[in-house]
């Protein structure tokens, strides 16, 4: 039986945005060649996942992106760069996953508006948290950023409570 090949309209904005955010994250961690190499693999997986609408490749891409940020932080890439790269990595995963969900649920629909609203919400949340965390960490006189660490612990508690609920 012949099948009609259909071009999906849904999710285009998210997929392009995800590729852009992923690439931006890799550029930011590029002071560390090792992190950049891991990030390059992540971007390849991300683009492959977007083209093939594969959630598996997307999960791999997200894991590699986080791996690249982690590597950059361990290898001493400046904290502001790592933080922005983290926000971009979250955004890349979020946009791509949302785009694939849209393709699955409403493949023929025009989705630009909801994708932009979604991207704005995620950017505001992740960016806001990163900014506040960085500002709090800057308040610490030296050594371990105690205030930020407390904030992290509080967040972890909220997470656990939320998961239990």
């Amino acid at each position: 039986m012949s099948r009609v090949v259909r071009v999906c309209r849904a999710g285009r904005v998210g997929l392009v945005g995800a590729a852009g955010a992923g690439t931006g994250a890799v550029v930011l961690v590029s002071p560390s060649p090792t992190a950049a190499a891991v990030g390059g693999g992540a971007v390849l997986a991300l683009v492959g996942g977007c083209l093939r609408s594969s959630r598996r490749l997307l999960t791999l891409a997200a894991t590699l992106l986080f791996g690249c940020v982690l590597t950059a932080a361990v290898l001493g890439v400046p904290t502001p760069l790592v933080l922005v790269a983290t926000v971009l990595a979250v955004l890349a995963y979020d946009l791509a996953e949302n785009a694939l969900a849209l393709r699955r649920q409403v493949p023929d629909a025009a989705t630009t508006r909801v994708e932009l609203v979604h991207a704005t919400a995620t950017t505001t949340l992740a960016g806001g948290v990163a900014g506040v965390a960085y500002a709090l960490s800057s308040l610490a006189p030296s050594g371990l950023p105690g205030v930020a660490f407390l904030g992290l612990l509080a967040g972890a508690v909220v997470l656990v409570l939320g998961l239990r609920a």
Partner: peptide
């Protein structure tokens, strides 16, 4: 383990996003 402040900040972002999702 590595006592890297940058990593803790990275995890703050992840934890905050996940906490938001859970609540």
């Amino acid at each position: 383990v590595t006592a890297r402040p940058g990593l803790l900040l990275v995890s703050v972002v992840g934890v905050a996003v996940a906490a938001y999702a859970s609540t």
